[in-house]
Design a protein around this nucleic acid. Sequence first.
DNA 1: GGGCCTAAATATAGACGTTGAATTAAGAGA
DNA 2: TCTCTTAATTCAACGTCTATATTTAGGCCC
Lengths: 418, 418
Amino acid sequence: MRGSAEGGQVGSPQLMRRLNTQRVLDHVWNGEPVTASELIRETGLTRATVLALCRELADQGWLGVLENSRRAGAYTKGRPALRYAFRRDACHVIGVDAGQHRISASVADLGGREIGQGERAFEPGRFDPDRQSGQERRKEVLTAIDAALDDAGLTSGDVGAVVLGVPAPVDAEGRSPVGLNRFWGQSNPDLVTLGAERGWECVVENDANLAALAELDNGAAEADSSFAALLSGERFGAGLVLRGELLRQPRGGAGELGMLELVDGVESPEALGHWARHHAREALASGGTGALAEYGQDEVQAEHVFGAARDGDPLALDIVDRLADRLARICVVLAGLLDLDRIVLSGAVAPALSGLVEAARAKFAEYLYAPWLDITVSELGADAVRTGAVRCAVEQVHARALQGDHVSSLLARGVLRA
Amino acid sequence: MRGSAEGGQVGSPQLMRRLNTQRVLDHVWNGEPVTASELIRETGLTRATVLALCRELADQGWLGVLENSRRAGAYTKGRPALRYAFRRDACHVIGVDAGQHRISASVADLGGREIGQGERAFEPGRFDPDRQSGQERRKEVLTAIDAALDDAGLTSGDVGAVVLGVPAPVDAEGRSPVGLNRFWGQSNPDLVTLGAERGWECVVENDANLAALAELDNGAAEADSSFAALLSGERFGAGLVLRGELLRQPRGGAGELGMLELVDGVESPEALGHWARHHAREALASGGTGALAEYGQDEVQAEHVFGAARDGDPLALDIVDRLADRLARICVVLAGLLDLDRIVLSGAVAPALSGLVEAARAKFAEYLYAPWLDITVSELGADAVRTGAVRCAVEQVHARALQGDHVSSLLARGVLRA
DNA sequence: GGGCCTAAATATAGACGTTGAATTAAGAGA
DNA sequence: TCTCTTAATTCAACGTCTATATTTAGGCCC
């Protein structure tokens, strides 16, 4: 009965082994192929140990062994080293941006490379949450996922984890509050239970949080730095990354911006699109002229404003200036309180906003002394949330990689710390 | 040369041993005496192992062995168990609240029990930072510390760690920005270097952060919960505890409230005392009457306002109401953005503010739906910062307890994670 | 093609800490 | 004094890592 029962072994050499396995896995995870010598250098372990660990990970399917050693360029003397490569295709993940007007799903490998897409879009323009029941929405999400799987040529069984991003706060159990805001419950009709139907590990997460994860992965910010991903959809939402770690609160309310109602010159958590439209209509109603007048007071949209501003239309420029002030004030609140290094403006409209951000930077400096703060536009455009969902799903797989191993249960029991 | 060089041993059984030692130490740290059986239950280790670890910790001086086993009450059959008790007197720490008007130092044991005090106070009323040079201030701090040591009957050599709380942001190196705010540089004239003169481990920390640590230790909040300690001195400062951990940013700006200038109905980071005075003088200047009029427009102080409000004076009550609104708005910003469980109002005046907080609670509910939020007054009164400094110093000792051991260097090298 | 060189992989012995079971110890009650 | 119960101690077995010695794999040179 020695070394078998899974309750025991708390402090035994076996545990050491698992810790080292995890360490090596972490090192190679989604990295370039490595030789044992490199791992020896990085982990401080002995050659014999490292090789044993690599063999173990290879047996488990996480590592592939590349016999063709002696990488190009590296000068070569002595016996060529084996090279171990992380197997990005060990399993696949699904990331979904389940927005209000559009659900887009993608299948990706463990390196985050998309290999399949699926999409469901609803009528553009105004969205009436009451027109879509929870059941319908769940079906739409599944349809998008299935389309993505189909596109990738994979099946349910290849899926290691699913992450769904929704425009609502999400608590630790994956649920969103109902009743407070009719959009919230509608956005997340118990989507966590959706994975169970297919036997998937399923996580629901707030969209701004996922956008933040995407930026984190994108290397926009240095490790250990702090930033906010400000997602400008219908309403603003922020994903807060503090010291390299996404802040997730049990109730899911971190980064909610309802409090902007109390901020001078901001007045509401409505996002840039809303205000661009609002200011344009207001201006046209009171006799404003210029490029925007072409669209008519009731038809003018946010994109028209940003387009006209790029072309130098004075009215549009004035509106952009007012939006920049709003944005700057939001940045002051976030960066001032949390001492951020960076604020990334994200969302579908983001790519069109470089001028706005530039103006916001200047205004920010008037309100707060924080010359280190970088206000930038996300490079990810409309894909930010989905990209973040994929990254989050990969993390899920990573975290569970050695599950069934003993460490995991020890971590769960708090025997080991983090 | 086996098992000796300190570079090696990365993944060996020796490391396992150190991890387990740390685990047992964490369990007993500042807790009640325990028997080996209890540790066996809590750690999952074997009796033989636990006893070996306890013996080791006892040899190192962290644990004392209480032969008088068979604790009162516990019914007793069989051989009485040895009991091991954490030695709170293994060494002592110094916590200092280096405020603008008052420097108070205390010597405490590792249980946080104060056993010596020292204090330096400057003229009450207006404080002119230019009147005190950095050198003078350093001397004052040392004087307070020496007085506390003297009071405790201890000497320099008994000191395991020193923590100094200052009313200024403090960066990772213990320094405060100079130039931006004349009070900041003045409050922290390179106090980190002060420990070196006496051979002490010395840490400088922001006062609100220390107040937050004090609340954390005080058990006011459950482990893993999130709260802000709102320190109301000359200006507001907040210590942010997120998921049970104090947020410390490299530049030290977390919890700085300069951004309150942009919050509607708050307008500045000046704290309650300032505004109480301000409103009272304003009211008296425009002919206000009542209890406050006795003091005269130029003499009336914040305490007068709070006192009069307790006695039901209408003018004072009106002022308190306005302060409560301000406080409520600040709470909305903090709790709304970070999804806090609790906000603790701290500082010397806090004990007098229970009425104000009650009013603030009601107003808060008008601004934000967050019925779970607890707005309370600290029980620690004027001692919060010093208490937090002591706690922080104890943590320093705890973190370094097994230093010289191999784990520490491994943690430093990133071989182990947190 | 055979020797030489280098660096990687493998094999083997040694050390250490943990487990788990057997043994001894310390009190309380009959 | 004997028995009962629970703790502490002892010891062999085991697993993992380290450290050293040995083998292997490929260039390079003659």
